[in-house]
Design a protein around this nucleic acid. Structure first.
Lengths: 144, 144
DNA sequence: CCTCTTTAGGTTGCGCACAATTGAATCGCG
DNA sequence: CGCGATTCAATTGTGCGCAACCTAAAGAGG
């Protein structure tokens, strides 16, 4: 096709991805607000609920985040009374992040969230599966 | 399936979307750094290159961003010498954002970026098209 | 044992996102 | 025309992301 603008906003996949990601985070916001956590904080809790106590490094690998992001975020989660932070005795470089009782209890309330969001977005499963696959393909490629 | 964890991180589409979006922004960073702009600033330039002078409101609608994000961003673009900002004479509530000569000239260098990124990510066109469609479906739904 | 290197986490600084508020300009309706 | 409602942009405050830098602890090699 002659005359196609390679810089046209709406045909940029990057922009669709950026907008969709923000839209989904925005959809989570009202569901997470009653729990008193933000979306990135919720992601940290997902890791801890699934795997138990983890080092800051482990969290960073799971979420693709560095200590510059995680350190202050974890301090806020600690201030909220949801997690504990303590230097590991075996290796004092590491900080072990674990859930408090309140952190574990919050899981009960969070269990409903994925289904609520699924209903709220109203996108069919086939499209979501395609989205999931495509995102993973991009993430895989970016890690090389 | 019995025993599936609804909160398992890796099966959350939201997390895949969040990670992929950050990965793509990271892929843009080294390409945009020589132009002296960030990824959100690049998006603003895409709108201006495509449609010419626009109000802050127009930019916000195109990019799904509000003035709290755009005002300081546009000031930085102005400080970089890429755009001008001026109150509209017809309606002094509006601020018209336009490109400077340097802003227009930057487009010449930006034209190559989409192709460079496409090559760098190495994801096939079919997957990208599916991603684009799925993201738009999500964005559509979120606007209701 | 002693240095050199690596690893882990924290801090600082900057630039988004976004909610909430403000102030000015314009509009709409009586 | 007058005036309350609406629109537009800016500002403030909070919380990410991320680069750059720093410190302390652990490992590796002689």
């Amino acid at each position: 096709m002659i005359g196609v603008n390679p810089l046209a906003l709406e045909q940029q996949v990057c922009f669709a991805l950026y907008s969709a990601s923000r839209a989904v985070t925005a959809a989570y916001r009202p569901l997470l607000a009653p729990l008193g956590v933000t979306y990135p904080q919720y992601l940290v809790l997902l890791v801890l609920w699934e795997h138990g106590t983890r080092s800051v490094r482990d969290l960073g690998e799971a979420l693709h985040l560095d200590s510059g992001t995680l350190s202050p975020l974890l301090k806020r989660l600690e201030a909220s009374g949801l997690v504990t932070r303590a230097r590991a005795a075996e290796d004092e470089r590491q900080v072990r992040v674990g859930l408090t009782d309140a952190g574990w209890e919050l899981r009960e309330r969070a269990v409903e969230i994925p289904a609520q969001l699924h209903d709220a977005t109203g996108v069919d499963d086939e499209t979501l599966a395609a989205l999931h696959r495509a995102c993973h393909a991009l993430i895989e490629e970016s890690q090389r």
